[in-house]
Simulated assay, not measured.
Amino acid sequence: MQALNFQKFPFRFKNSENKISIFDEIRKKFVVLLPEEWVRQHCVQYLMIDKKYPKSLINVEKELVINELKKRYDIVIFNPDGSIHLIVECKAPKITINQDTFDQVARYNIALQATFLMVTNGINHYYCQMDFENERYDFLEDIPNFGQQSQ
């Protein structure tokens, strides 16, 4: 798999039926290793190891309904009170992150009401903090570590 713009993390792999799978610590199972999954697993490790978010507050690949359409978010981090702290949208490394990508995560956030957004293709990472009062998001250098409220 392609090198990404994250530190190197120790992953568990298995090969069955000529498909390589990677172990997802959050879902507690092996999942087929596709380019987007490679980015997602790096991002999960980054959030747990670098940003100190507890595994118990991280959720991966769950369905949500927006305007009666079923969608799946990549990663959500909850606050200890159950509200949503961060939504992460992961794309494969070859996918260029553009306004459509931000529109996608912003649509998800209409339903989820997260304070922070992250969009990554593993090479480029973008971080935003929501300004609900002015209905916009402000770009950040990084997202806060666990326990910090804002930059």
Rank of each mutant, 00 (worst) to 15 (best):
F30K: 02
R107G: 00
D131F: 00
F11C: 04
R12P: 00
N124M: 04
K8N: 15
T96L: 12
Y108L: 06
Q148H: 10
T96Q: 14
L86K: 03
I95Q: 11
F11Q: 04
R40E: 10
H42G: 07
F11M: 04
H42I: 03
F6L: 05
D24A: 06
H85M: 13
E61Q: 13
G122R: 02
T101M: 07
Q151A: 06
I20N: 08
F11T: 02
M1S: 15
D81V: 05
G147W: 06
Q113P: 00
L47V: 07
D142G: 04
D50I: 07
N145Q: 11
F6Q: 07
K71A: 05
I26A: 08
T96D: 10
E133L: 14
I87L: 15
E37L: 05
V105L: 10
F78R: 09
Q45R: 15
S83Q: 10
S83R: 12
A3N: 14
F11S: 05
E17C: 02
Q2A: 09
N121W: 04
D81S: 13
I75D: 03
C128S: 11
F30H: 14
D74T: 09
E135L: 12
Y46T: 01
V65S: 12
Q41E: 14
S21P: 01
D24S: 06
E89G: 09
K28N: 15
R72E: 12
I97G: 06
N15Y: 02
H85S: 14
N67D: 15
D142V: 01
V32N: 10
V119K: 01
K52D: 10
K29G: 02
V32W: 01
I123G: 03
Q2H: 11
N15K: 13
H125V: 01
N134Q: 15
F11Y: 13
T96V: 14
E36T: 11
N18T: 02
N124R: 12
S16C: 03
N109G: 09
K70G: 01
K14M: 13
E61W: 00
F146Y: 15
Q113S: 13
D81T: 05
V65T: 14
P144W: 03
I87H: 05
K55N: 10
T115D: 14
K14C: 11
S16G: 00
Q2T: 12
D81P: 02
E133I: 12
V31S: 06
